[in-house]
């Protein structure tokens, strides 16, 4: 198995694989810090407490997570044709790419976790801001953030790869089915929430479930994405 070559395929351009996400994250963090400094400088202690609470929902971390969401799409859309063109097998590509997905998720989860530990320890970098310690990355203990970001990143990459592979296989008609299916689910949930008290109560129970439950859900999505992707990629053809 030439897994090493596949890993190299994804990482040969270091600036693209690691440089840009970290640069963009740093920029985004800098902006958050500037905002924090302005708020604390102008509004004082009260404003600082308010900001700290509000920033639980600070989505600036998506400057890092965003590019990773695209990773799954790009892996299948752009790297797969080149891998085949260079004589790598589908099996080799799938194994190597899965490894890269896991490695990516672990690396960036570690980055976020370290950031969170520093952020918490320094009281929001001395400014009371939240960048790493947010709802999306987990506001519990550090190890929860590590697990949560790892699973989240892995899940989006696998689901992204699965969607792209299915799109290559069935073309536009897959997208139609996919979007219609998704719209149907959303519609059903909205309708249920509006029309049925029992549904609303059940939904609140689900939304309010413990952290562990959410992790199982995310892991479930990751497993589903992996199953679909690995099944389809073995029969995927160059276009």
């Amino acid at each position: 198995m030439r897994i090493r070559n596949v890993v190299q395929l994804h990482t040969v351009n270091r600036l693209q694989a690691f440089g840009w996400p970290l640069v963009i994250m740093s920029l985004s963090l800098t902006i958050t810090l500037i905002i924090g400094a302005l708020v604390v400088g102008v509004g004082g202690a009260d404003a600082r407490t308010g900001m700290n609470t509000g920033m639980q929902w600070n989505g600036a971390i998506f400057a890092l997570l965003g590019p990773l969401i695209g990773f799954g799409f790009i892996a299948m859309g752009q790297y797969f044709p080149l891998a085949l063109g260079l004589g790598l097998t589908r099996r080799e590509f799938a194994a190597g790419t899965a490894l890269v997905f896991v490695g990516n998720a672990a690396f960036y989860a570690a980055v976020v976790t370290i950031g969170k530990v520093v952020e918490v320890a320094t009281g929001g970098f001395g400014l009371g801001v939240r960048f790493f310690d947010t709802f999306y990355t987990g506001i519990g203990a550090w190890w929860q953030t590590l697990v949560q970001t790892f699973l989240l990143i892995l899940a989006v990459m696998l689901v992204g790869a699965a969607i792209t592979t299915a799109f290559h296989r069935w073309g536009q008609s897959f997208l139609w089915v996919f979007w219609i299916g998704l719209a149907a689910v959303v519609l059903a949930v909205v309708a249920g929430a509006l029309l049925s008290d029992a549904f609303r109560a059940a939904a609140m129970d689900v939304l309010g479930m413990a952290w562990g439950g959410w992790m199982v859900v995310i892991a479930g999505f990751a497993a589903l994405g992996a199953a679909v992707w690995l099944t389809l990629v073995r029969r995927a053809q160059a276009r």
């Binding site: 030439r2 190299q8 395929l9 351009n13 752009q78 063109g85 004589g87 790598l88």
Partner: peptide, 28 residues
């Protein structure tokens, strides 16, 4: 691994330079 296929329509990742492709080919 004993077969090279140079196709007119080969697609490369958007962010790739020739040196990147050659490095991978060297390993493959």
């Amino acid at each position: 691994s004993q077969t090279a296929f140079i196709q007119e329509s080969q697609r490369y990742p958007d962010t790739f330079r020739a040196v990147d492709v050659l490095r991978i080919a060297a390993g493959a």
